[in-house]
Nucleic acid binder design. Structure first.
Lengths: 207, 207
DNA sequence: TCTTCTCCATACGATACCGTATGGAACACG
DNA sequence: CGTGTTCCATACGGTATCGTATGGAGAAGA
């Protein structure tokens, strides 16, 4: 019955999810290597004693974090790719936009931290592989709905996916407006140059 | 006059470059966070005393490492994109191949480690930005030589670049052969769908 | 009230690492 | 031989972190 009507000096007991949330925030700013128990405890205004009550050890938190991330990403990609029939191309462009670094800085930082982690942690790699497979399938289904062949849909989904995260790795110094035009052009190309303007685009406008 | 004709119990004095090379190797396997002085010293069979003679502190090694990486990357991209006239499309596909994870695992690991580092270190971010700008310019020039407009060339270079590194972030579980076909298709599409087979490719072969 | 369970604080040993201080071995050179 | 330079070993103080052991406060029940 005492939810949050105590004076601010009081605090509610923590649970596992509170630690996991804090851990996610921490790896966004410090990377996976910065995920230290005592650092987390300080942020949560408690001591390690609390942590070791909720988790067996550091590894248990990492596993829980991976599981949390995986489930969130799976939920999200299904939400973002649930397209109305006939709106698949728009939905694809929407996906590119939503997953771009400029629109989702924190999410991208978490994504990159986990993927760098996955380069040398098999369990992280396994989770990343699962998320990749599901996201690729979702994107591929949208391309299939656009009438592309299996192979073409798979290839475009892969390109879209690689492009989105690859772009977030880049440190381009460019004018924001110019950048937006560039991204719009690329997105339009990935999601369907054929359906883009009804005609071929291989003859450059030549200024 | 004593170069390497001592018994194997002897070893040559180290210099800065030996430390830097070892540091590069270490971040490839352990990430930038794993770049520890005493760990490096153990690998080089010396103690910290040697390190602090060659470098002021840990940060100095990091800076030297960034500089080393930058110069190497700049040399490499110029080498890889130096195309014979009329061979630009082949050269572009060659670049995609050379920078792919399967062909250059260690280089990709270093690249990813440094880029993750750059997410939270301004100096690393600056170096990455310089490398990105030069690589983009090199790729763009190849597209320009193919007759594309400035804007189109910039867009394709960006896509190519983002794709290559984005792909290396993915953990796709797929048959190697199928994967190769997929990559070939994507590469062909990025480097010039127009010049690829002389006709449009937007009508799927439909099996 | 007494007990039990939940949640956390405290204290501890152990390890790893940073950077400094200082000495020493090997070599070059005069 | 004496001296300076190069390169490294050793020892030290200090910090951060891990995981454990143990006690304690507070709520919930009996």
């Amino acid at each position: 019955m005492n939810d949050l009507n105590q004076p601010p000096t009081e605090r509610a007991p923590l649970d596992r999810s509170a630690w996991i949330e804090a851990a996610i925030d921490l790896i966004a700013t410090e990377g996976v290597a910065g995920l230290r128990i005592e650092t987390l405890a300080r942020k949560l205004r408690v001591t390690k004693g609390s942590f070791y009550w909720h988790f067996r050890d550091r590894r248990a938190l990492q596993r829980a974090l991976l599981e949390h991330w995986r489930e969130g990403r799976i939920r999200d990609i299904h939400k973002q790719t649930r397209a109305r029939a006939g709106q698949e191309a728009e939905q694809l462009r929407h996906v590119i936009d939503v997953y771009s670094a400029s629109r989702n800085r924190k999410g991208i930082l978490i994504e990159l931290a986990i993927r760098e982690w996955a380069q040398r942690d098999p369990e992280a790699a396994q989770v990343v592989a699962e998320v990749d497979a599901i996201r690729l399938a979702c994107a591929r289904d949208l391309f299939l709905a656009l009438g592309l062949s299996e192979e073409e849909a798979t290839a475009r989904a892969t390109l879209l996916y690689a492009y989105v995260f690859g772009f977030s790795l880049m440190h381009a110094e460019r004018m924001p407006q110019e950048m937006e035009r560039l991204k719009t052009r690329i997105a339009g190309w990935i999601t369907g140059p054929a359906a883009e303007n009804g005609k071929r685009d291989d003859h450059p406008p030549s200024a």
